[in-house]
Design a protein around this nucleic acid. Sequence first.
DNA 1: TATATTTAGTTAGCCTTGCTAACTAAATAT
DNA 2: ATATTTAGTTAGCAAGGCTAACTAAATATA
Lengths: 168, 168
Amino acid sequence: MPQRRRQSADTSASSASSAPPEFAAANTLHSAAIRLLRAIRVEDRASGLSGPRLSALSVIVFGGPLPMAALAAAEQVQPPTITRLVRELERDGLVERVRDADDRRVLRVRATARGRQVMEEGRRRRVARLAAGLKALPPADRKLLARAAELIERLARPEPPAPPGTPP
Amino acid sequence: MPQRRRQSADTSASSASSAPPEFAAANTLHSAAIRLLRAIRVEDRASGLSGPRLSALSVIVFGGPLPMAALAAAEQVQPPTITRLVRELERDGLVERVRDADDRRVLRVRATARGRQVMEEGRRRRVARLAAGLKALPPADRKLLARAAELIERLARPEPPAPPGTPP
DNA sequence: TATATTTAGTTAGCCTTGCTAACTAAATAT
DNA sequence: ATATTTAGTTAGCAAGGCTAACTAAATATA
């Protein structure tokens, strides 16, 4: 990890005083999401794949055949990391690389039938664990969670909320 | 990663037919949480810490002084991994290890002032990005998300939903 | 009490995952 | 026709993951 240095003053505990109203929600939502994924991540052991491989595989399965660079961007890693990751997934028969006909520099990665199967089994296990928890809730709460999930999806989907100073 | 082999039959696409009602909610919630954290993770670069270090540090900050083994369990890694991670965090002045007085085998890890500061700045950046997205929502939706977050916290908090066959 | 077992953590040594720098090859601009 | 840009790879290093084997403290047992 490159050593980037920080300097800052604010050492105070998180003051609930002057924070805008959306911060409280953001805060709770943030830690809720972390805890949620942490809790269901234990199911991933059963897939026989490491975290990075499983994550890349699911992007490939859902995202259709996509170029190496797009995969690297999605996984927030540098190209060489993806080169190797995909090589290994290919060696294991989970994905294939196909040369793009229009632009012969790009390689599109797509999942094999087996890759799709492995990934969906994994997702099924995760979701099943989560569903087990939801089953205990009253239907009203489940409904609320479902609506919230839609909102979050739409929030996180198209692009990250533009960092301050981005021209429209 | 140890190579654990899977065998399974169900190759069919996810059939929406016979799935219990909680599965739909679980499904959406699952991918929403993934997308959410993926989107705000970009802020972590600014901390100068890698993902694993930042994650361990936040468990230490929030979880108070806690034994190496507890940290390993929380991070879902093996003890040797934590030994090294903590050694490096300590070298960087972010945490300290203190020998427990009662049981002199255990080492409790706690954050230094600087560790706490680095971690909280990081969290602030993440939450700020999320809050920026929330600000665009109508207050009713924000309210709904806040309530949902509470539910999720309670769901994921105490322990993972017991795996099938666990005696009460 | 003395010995055996269990528990907490570390060390050694191996792969995997991340990076940057430097390269090849195709597409595009000059 | 040449120069630049873009997509991906290779090489080589640091960090993060593991298992196996160890030390030391606590606890159980003979």
